[in-house]
Design a binder for these strands. Structure first.
Length: 380
DNA sequence: AATCCGGGGGT
DNA sequence: ACCCCAGGATT
């Protein structure tokens, strides 16, 4: 297998000059019901479908990269009205193109579109080439977009793999793993190609995207209306809610804090009420300081004792939705609050039997209760 | 293969 | 503030 073939999205050695194919649609349980559904429920009045020229298909595919259909439609109509052909686009100043793109975002798409049009004008007779490799060589066109253009504009037998198709295939085949992961994406491409029908490639391509956009949605898919339900692994296993596997969350930022675990002569623990806003708002917790210096300062303000007598305990990691909280507890025994500091609404010495009645963050409660357990072991 | 890039819209 | 969306380019 040549490198060229292995990189290709198509499954035939060469695309047929005309899309005419024997009227024996593949018996694939995927494509056939999907096409039948598309005939009745698919989207047939999108602006780039009438007329469905290569240039309009290309423009729509670029506009729809990372952009929702509803958002792209008015931009598409404005754009093709101003620049109706590849030649017109190639001849236009870049500033005009960017002006037509203004508000759509991802402006590199517009710059690439313009550059690609000029390449077409110079190297492809002023038209978009009907060739997979030539398309992929143009800026802004990758494997999926090239396949979409060839299939939709000419009915050539190429697969696509956009966000919609990834979602549909991941569910239909019960594929675990984030689709952006190369190994997962490779499997998805394999299925995308295996399901290609022998005819109606333009409709089939649109049908996949319509299914993903209207039924097999990210949240609350309409499985009861889905033509692919009979063969859908995720549906059979009740896993439509967990497939496709979501993108792994990026590394959470971390925050470090020192916790002061203070015991008095009676063994009570000093607890402090947390501020009214923020995490663990208004719960009782250990006095907390941002770092050693702040801990030392708080100790000096509130406690009679020697800070250096504190012993470092094992750190505690707690993960919030938006950051990782690393707590570094430090323990003192038999200390007292300074004369000026008295129990109040926000700071008090708490005996063991009063812990249960207080709102205390779970990791802090675990830490404090472990202290009392240690007391018992030492003097049963 | 992993990372970066990009901007509007919805939550 | 965060995630999603008809991905591609770069390293």
């Amino acid at each position: 297998m040549s490198p060229r073939t292995s990189r290709q999205a198509h499954v035939e050695a060469a695309a047929p000059a005309t899309p005419t194919t024997p009227a024996t649609p593949a018996a694939d349980a995927f494509a056939a019901p999907l096409l039948a559904w598309f005939d009745v429920h698919g989207r047939h009045d999108l602006p780039w479908q009438h007329p469905r020229t290569p240039y309009r298909v290309w423009l729509s595919e670029i506009m729809l990269q990372q952009t929702q259909v509803r958002v792209a439609i008015p931009y598409f109509e404005r754009f093709v009205a101003a620049l109706p052909t590849v030649a017109a686009l190639a001849a236009a100043p870049l500033d005009d193109v960017l002006g037509l793109w203004s508000g759509l975002g991802y402006y590199a798409r517009a710059r690439n579109l313009h550059a690609a049009a000029r390449t077409c004008a110079e190297a492809h007779g002023g038209e978009l080439p009907r060739d997979f490799d030539a398309l992929v060589a143009l800026p802004g066109i990758g494997r999926s977009t090239a396949g979409a253009i060839l299939a939709q504009a000419w009915g050539d037998r190429f697969a696509i793999l956009d966000g919609n198709v990834k979602r549909v295939l991941a569910r239909y085949h019960g594929i675990d793993g984030w689709p952006g992961q190369p190994a997962v994406e490779k499997r998805l491409w394999g299925f995308a190609q295996a399901h290609l029908p022998r005819a109606r490639l333009a409709d089939y391509t649109q049908a996949q995207m319509d299914l993903g956009a209207t039924l097999c949605t990210r949240h609350a898919p309409a499985c009861t209306a889905c033509p692919l339900r009979p063969g859908c692994v995720a549906y059979a296993q009740g896993r439509t809610g967990e497939l496709p596997t979501p993108k792994p969350g990026k590394a959470l930022p971390t925050r470090e804090a020192t916790l002061l675990l203070l015991r008095d002569a009676e063994g009570r623990v000093l607890l402090q009420r947390r501020p009214p806003a923020g995490v663990w708002a208004q719960l009782w917790s250990l006095p907390e300081a941002d770092g050693e210096a702040a801990a030392r300062a708080w100790f000096g303000d509130h406690i009679d004792g020697d800070y250096a007598h504190g012993e470092a305990l094992d750190s505690i990691a707690h993960v919030f939705s938006h950051y990782r909280f690393n707590m570094h507890p430090r323990r003192w025994r038999a200390v007292a609050t300074a004369a000026a500091v008295r129990d109040n609404d926000d700071l008090r010495w708490v005996p063991r039997d009063a812990l249960a009645g207080l709102g205390i963050p779970a990791p802090v409660r675990t830490l404090v209760e472990a202290q009392f357990e240690q007391d018992q072991e030492k003097q049963p």
